[in-house]
Design a protein around this nucleic acid. Sequence first.
DNA 1: GGAGTAGGTTCGCTCATTGAACTCACCCCG
DNA 2: CGGGGTGAGTTCAATGAGCGAACCTACTCC
Lengths: 150, 150
Amino acid sequence: MRRTKFDDWPCPIARATDLIGDWWTPLVMRELYFGRRRFDAIQESLQIPRAVLAQRLERLVAEEMITKVAYEERPPRFEYRLTDKGREFWPVLAAMWRWGSDWLWTDGEGPPVVLKDRETGAVVHPLVVDETTGRPVDLRTIRVGRAPRS
Amino acid sequence: MRRTKFDDWPCPIARATDLIGDWWTPLVMRELYFGRRRFDAIQESLQIPRAVLAQRLERLVAEEMITKVAYEERPPRFEYRLTDKGREFWPVLAAMWRWGSDWLWTDGEGPPVVLKDRETGAVVHPLVVDETTGRPVDLRTIRVGRAPRS
DNA sequence: GGAGTAGGTTCGCTCATTGAACTCACCCCG
DNA sequence: CGGGGTGAGTTCAATGAGCGAACCTACTCC
C-alpha cells in the first residue's frame, strides 16, 4: 500500500512531517540553504541517487518551497531558488541542528561544524522561545488548545 | 537496496534526520508529548499500523529517546516514558508547529489547534532565536564554520 | 468456559529507494 | 566533421520499507 499521507491532518506537526519526512528532503534543503542551487552540485555533495533528487526537487517546487529558474537558455540550464516559505523553514533545521549537536555526539566531543554569525563570527546556539514572553518553550508549561476563532 | 543512513554523518541535521526522518516518528513523539504512553493508545490515536508502531518504539528506546517501563506485572503491561533526550527534542517539533501553522493552511484560516501556556492560557508562538543575542536566527546572517577545538 | 484487554507478531502485497547505466541537448576543441 | 565534456535528468532491476488484516499470548473478569 501507499505510505500514509499526513498533509491534510488538522495538526501542524503532521502536515510539516508529510513534507520534510520524505527521506533526504531536509538534507536537500540544507544544501539549498548553504548556497548549492544546481542539480549536479546537490547530487554530488549528498551522494543522493539522481532519481530521488529529481523527485524531491519536483515536490519541493510543487509545495512552493523552491522555484525552478532557467539561468541559461542554450543549452537549457536550471537552478533552484528558495521561496519565502522555503527560507522560513530554516529555523526548524536550526532547532534540529541545536538538538543534534547537544545529543547525537557521544564521543565526548561535539560535531565538527558549528553555526556562526556571518559578521561577528560568534558561535550561534539556536533556542526555541515563545515570541511574546521570550521564555524557552518547555513541554511542561504548554498544552494544546482549540484555536480562538477570529 | 537499504535506505541510506545518515546517523554517522558529520552534520547535526543529517544525524537528527536519520532519527526523526522515519515515517510516523515525529507523530509518535507528539503523542508522547501530549501524554499518551501506552501502545494501544498511540496506535488508536494515530491509526498507525501496529507493526510500524512497534518498530518505531523499539528504535526510540534504542536511541534513548524513551524508556519502556512495566507499570504492572501480572498481566504484563508496559508504558513508554520520555527521557531527557526525548523531552528536549520537543522544541524542534514546536518550531515545526510554528512553521506549519504559518505556511500549511491555505484556506485563509489557521489550524484548528494552537499551543497555549498552561497557566496563563495565552497562545504560544514558538520562535527560534540565538541563545546569546536573543535575535531570531536568519539564514542571511549565519554561516557554517569549523568547530573551535577546545 | 467464553469474552475482553494490552501489547505485540506474522503475513502477503505494493510502493519507494538504490546504484548503475542510459538519454538528450548543447558547447568546445582539433 | 568527429570526439569528448557538461548539466539535467530518465530508465532499469533488485531490494527493502510501509500497508492492512489476521493472528498470538498472557492474563482477568463474569
